[in-house]
Amino acid sequence: MANDESLATTSPTDEFLKGLWRENPTFVQVLGMCPTLAVTNSATNAIAMGLATTFVLVASNLAVSSIRRFVPKQVRIVTFILLIATFVTVVDYAIQAISLGLHKALGAFIALIVVNCIILGRAEAFASKNGLLRSALDGLGMGVGFTLALLALGGVRELVGRGSLFGVPLLWDGYQGWVVMILPAGGFFTLAALLLFVQWRKRAAKEVTP
């Protein structure tokens, strides 16, 4: 890490791990709510969205980190947005090529990765100040953390809503799905419940180690 100019004393592994729980973009920072709620009506959609976002995160973090010395302050944000939009367009076409059905299910939300605050946030707050490896790991960590959060939501919603996971029926025959979980309202409720759970855990942890 010769070119590391970050003041952080954290290890590279920690850059990756922090996104998973401690600084989880969804549950802790409460960022990027639109895709979190919109595409989590099935686990498949959730994971596809998560991976697409992870790709954009890593790619944009890498790109931003590599050009960070040459970009004048005034045009920084514009440059970042241009780069992010490019990667999103690439992902959009890639998903369309892989599966039309998936592309249809995710709808406009792939393109909307552009305005996901997590990505611009990481580019601005981290990649523009850190070296390539750390930036990539940070992007990966945040991306995986985001994917896990989406998966948690998508998993719960699909399991309760349809009794299946990734389209595979998991519960007994004749299980009555709770349609509301797949509807928009279910997204709000599930995320609220998960946030509640996280808050409760944090509080419990605080009480143990004051």
Binding site: I67, F70, V71, P72, V75, V78, T79, L82, L83, A85, T86, F87, T89, V90, Y93, A94
Partner: peptide, 18 residues
């Protein structure tokens, strides 16, 4: 210089992906 070069790279990436 930055904007034009970034724009060029981006354009290239998009067109090739397309």
């Amino acid at each position: 210089r930055t904007l034009v070069s970034v724009g060029l790279v981006c354009g290239l990436l998009i067109v090739s992906a397309y």
